[in-house]
């Protein structure tokens, strides 16, 4: 099959990207950007990067749209016309040309002699079945071979969320609980426009539990199919955020309190690092899961990956919902100002 599907999807991607830069109405740009996300997930799938596509799907379909729109509600939804300055354009063109020149030396797509396939990849691919007995190599690499990196990434999620909390909750110092109360108060004041949309309420009641169930499936099936802690966390958070969108922030606050989420955010990283410490106590190295089970190294590795992925999932869920809390809480506080919707529609 030599039909160039990838090339066509890539052309669509290019057209969409150009359109996003061209559009002045940022709400319209956000819609077209949603198409961009769909296309890139499709492209990842076509290029066999299913786990990456899975992440793009989970994040791009729901949460990134929610966050972009929350940002738009906080700021001006229209891009201001700025005079074209030539120095930045020249820099961008130069860097772009350099990058394109750099790709000329890169190995072809799917080339088996590419350096990346020579170094450690064969070891990982061999080890996936013999050491782990887990079909999804990506999960192995993320959670075990590259366990340190993933611990770092999870910590980055934690740090970034704390940064968002500090920025949007005000830089009022260490009173986190005070910040949470600000969000709660704003949530109470927020009018819930979806109250009047019975259809959305009923369908959310049906769908949100199904999304959560699917999130759990992705969490615990990540060893065998595409998925894992990051994706599951995002999917699980999508269900909670969907509830928050339709029933209002105050209702979501009754489901999961910001305090609970803050604890969960840190607890996930603690579970991850704690698994590493537990393996230290069993005379292994940090994050060496093989020692976690007395009888079988393979079982120990299964257990370790399960725990680590659970930690990632908890942290990502709490991070996403907390960020939503802070963005939407801000929006509710600002909602007194009437929006200029006419320009947006036109």
């Amino acid at each position: 099959m030599t039909f160039p599907i990838e090339a066509i999807v890539f052309l669509f991607l290019l057209a969409t990207a150009l359109a996003v830069t061209h559009l002045r109405d940022l709400f319209a740009a956000a819609m077209v950007f949603g198409v961009f996300s769909l296309l890139s997930a499709g492209l990842f799938t076509l290029m066999d990067a299913v786990d990456v596509a899975f992440t793009e799907a989970a994040v791009g379909a729901g949460i990134s749209t929610v966050l972009i729109l929350s940002t738009l509600a906080l700021t001006d939804p229209r891009e201001h016309q700025q005079p074209v300055r030539f120095a930045p354009v020249a820099v961008v063109l130069l860097v772009g040309a350099a990058l394109v020149y750099g790709t000329l030396d890169m190995p072809y797509y799917g080339d088996p002699t590419a350096p990346i396939h020579k170094h450690v990849a064969p070891e990982y691919i061999e080890g996936a079945m013999t050491d782990f007995g887990i079909p999804n190599i990506v999960t192995n690499v993320l959670a075990s071979y590259r366990g340190y990196d993933t611990l770092g990434e999870t910590t980055v999620v934690l740090t970034a969320t704390v940064g968002v909390m500090l920025l949007l909750g005000g830089l009022g110092g260490a009173r986190h609980r005070g910040d949470a109360e600000v969000v709660e108060a704003a949530g109470d004041e927020e009018p819930t426009p979806m109250d009047r949309v019975q259809v959305a309420r009923v369908s959310t009641t049906v769908l949100a539990p199904l999304i959560m169930l699917f999130g759990l499936y992705v969490q615990f099936h990540g060893d065998f199919g595409p998925g894992g802690g990051f994706q599951a966390g995002v999917i699980f958070a999508s269900a909670l955020i969907l509830h928050g969108i339709v029933f209002g922030l105050s209702s979501l606050k009754r489901v999961v309190s910001p305090r609970f989420l803050e604890i969960g955010l840190a607890a996930g990283v603690l579970i991850y690092a704690g698994t590493g410490v537990a393996s230290l106590f069993r005379d292994g190295t940090f994050l060496d899961y093989a020692v976690l089970d007395h009888h079988s190294a393979q079982h120990g590795r299964h257990l370790g990956i399960l725990l680590v992925e659970a930690g990632v999932g908890i942290t990502v869920t709490c991070a996403m919902v907390l960020i939503f809390f802070f963005f939407a809480g801000r929006r509710a506080a600002k909602s007194e100002e009437p929006g200029d919707r006419d320009r947006r529609v036109a």
Binding site: V197, V199, A200, S203, V206, L207, L210
Partner: peptide, 16 residues
């Protein structure tokens, strides 16, 4: 099944 469930809902809300 999910598509048949969600697409009328979003279509309805969009038109409304």
């Amino acid at each position: 099944a999910f598509l048949l469930y969600t697409s009328p809902v979003s279509g309805h809300a969009l038109v409304k």
